[in-house]
Nucleic acid binder design. Structure first.
Lengths: 128, 128
DNA sequence: CATATTGTACTAATACACTAGTACAGTTAG
DNA sequence: CTAACTGTACTAGTGTATTAGTACAATATG
C-alpha cells in the first residue's frame, strides 16, 4: 500500500485515507478481493490511532468500495450494487456542476475544462 | 436575487450562499458591476444573522468574485486577476480528479462522465 | 452637516468534527 | 482449545467551525 498523509493540509486524516483508497481502486491499483492493511497495521505505520483508520474503512464500506468482516479483514468489494443510471447521474451531477462553475470562474474555455477532465479520466486507465 | 437555503442539508449557510452566488455569476445571471443585496437586507430576508452573510461576502471577495466597499455595498467584480493558465489548472485539477474517480466508482463510462460535464457547462450558457 | 445605510472587527456561545483510549466480539492459525 | 489477529462499540477530550450579538468605521444621501 502506498499511502501518504499530509498532516498540515487541514483535510481530516480519515478523508485523506478514503480518497486515496478510492482513487487506487478506481485506477485498478487495488483489485477486487484484494486485502487492505488491517486497521492496527496501517495505524501503526502512519503513526495514527487505529480508530481513525477504522473510521475510514467504515465510510468506504458504506460507499460500497470495500467490505469489512470482523476477524477477517477489509477487502476491495466487487462492483457497486446495480444503481440505476439516473441515480448515478443524480449523485455525480453536483461534482460536475462544481467543476463547471469553477472552470468558468477561472475564465477557462469549455474545451479547456473538458480537456482537464479527459486527462484525469485517462490517468485512471482504460476500464480495467 | 433568487437565493434559497436548505437548513437541513448540513452544509453551512455561508457556503450555500457562496456557491449560489458563484453559480449565478458564472451563468451570467449576475453581471459585472451589478450590486448584491446588502448584508442586512439579505440576512433579514433569509432570517439569518447579518454576520453570516458578511462571512460569505468576505469569502467571495477573497476569491475575486465580488468587491465589497464599506458604506457602498457589494458588487460583482470584473474578471479574475490574470492568473497563469498553469495556476488555473493547478487549482482546478483536484475537482476534475474527484469527478473522474467518482464517475469510475459508479461504473460510468468515460463518455458518460464527459457528457455530464458538457451538460453542466452548457447550462452556464455560451461565454456571456 | 446630519442621518441612514453600508461593510468590518471583535467577542462569545454552542455544537459538532476529529482523534484517541479502552474494552468487546468475531475469525483465523497454531 | 488457545492465542493472536481482525473489525466494532463505546466513551471522552480537545479543538475548531458555525453562528450570533454588539459596537465601530466608512460611504452615501438629503
Amino acid at each position: 500500500m502506498l499511502l501518504h498523509l499530509n498532516p498540515s493540509s487541514g483535510v481530516p486524516v480519515y478523508l485523506q485515507l478514503e480518497a486515496q483508497v478510492k482513487q487506487a481502486v478506481a485506477a485498478g491499483a487495488l483489485r477486487t478481493g484484494e486485502a487492505l492493511p488491517s486497521t492496527r497495521k496501517l495505524a501503526a505505520e502512519l503513526r495514527i490511532n487505529p480508530n481513525t483508520v477504522a473510521r475510514a474503512y467504515q465510510d468506504l464500506e458504506r460507499d460500497g468500495v470495500t467490505r469489512s468482516v470482523p476477524g477477517g479483514g477489509t477487502f476491495v468489494a466487487d462492483g457497486l450494487p446495480g444503481l440505476l443510471k439516473s441515480e448515478k447521474v443524480k449523485r455525480l451531477r453536483p461534482h460536475a456542476r462544481q467543476l463547471a462553475v469553477e472552470g468558468r470562474q477561472l475564465r477557462l474555455t469549455r474545451e479547456e475544462t473538458l480537456k482537464l477532465l479527459e486527462e484525469e479520466l485517462d490517468k485512471l486507465g482504460g476500464q480495467p
